[in-house]
Design a protein around this nucleic acid. Structure first.
Length: 201
DNA sequence: CTTCAGATGCTCT
DNA sequence: GAGCATCTGAAGA
């Protein structure tokens, strides 16, 4: 598996969002790698996108991370109890990012470790509902990988949180409107959500 | 399968 | 003080 370098993120955000589908997200946690294949993403393009926290280059304490170099992790708290993982894209100072909305464990060992993080039970003890909806949301993904704001600003070219390419290519990529951004006026219709059908592990 | 309420705390005005 | 790039469990169809 080849780790993606900064040049991967230093590109058009919508293109990066598409290209991230099928890639392997690795989070090293307690000296142990957890790996999931990315199945769903959304693009947020600050300069023109009212759904983006840094719309029109809005700079606040929270959005500061979005102005970091491409290949930086942007992680924030939402609804008081969940976290969302993003990857900063495009040139430094251009506040854009890709939200990682879903994934699926790469191996059985990954599923075991993630199910403990999420449900405090082993994979075989999960309900069928839990299994079917294992990592199909940004908050679930962060909980499963034990990611929170302490990892905000992490460098994706480092060794604790990164994305790798193992050659897997999704068959059919679907496109749609982004989720949960009803406040974003004309941007609610931008087709910047990407996902593909994947087998339930 | 579907809807629905409630949780919970940070961020920005 | 209002709102939020969400999730869960319970209840109904």
């Amino acid at each position: 598996m080849e780790k993606l370098g900064r040049e991967f993120y230093d590109r058009d955000t919508v293109q990066v969002a598409r290209d991230l589908l099928g890639k392997v997200l690795v989070r090293v946690w307690e000296d142990h790698p957890l790996a999931v294949r990315i199945t769903e993403t959304e693009a947020y393009v600050g300069p023109i996108d009212k759904a983006c926290h840094a719309y029109n280059y809005k700079r606040t304490a929270r959005t500061e991370t979005l102005f970091a170099p491409p290949g930086t992790a942007y992680i924030y708290l939402i609804y008081g109890m969940y976290h969302c993982l993003n990857f900063v894209t495009e040139a430094e100072g251009t506040p854009c990012a890709v939200l990682i909305r879903g994934g699926t464990p790469l191996t059985w060992e990954d599923e075991e470790a993630i199910s403990i993080n999420r449900f405090h039970c082993t994979a075989s003890e999960m309900s069928s509902y839990q299994r079917k909806h294992f990592l199909d949301g940004p908050g679930k993904l962060c909980k499963g990988l034990s990611l929170d704001r302490s990892m905000n600003g992490a460098d994706l070219t480092g060794h604790t949180l990164f994305v790798a390419d193992d050659g897997f290519v999704p068959e059919t990529i679907h496109t749609g409107k982004r989720i949960g951004i009803d406040y974003a006026e004309e941007a609610v219709d931008f087709p910047w959500r990407f996902f593909y059908d994947h087998a339930i592990v």
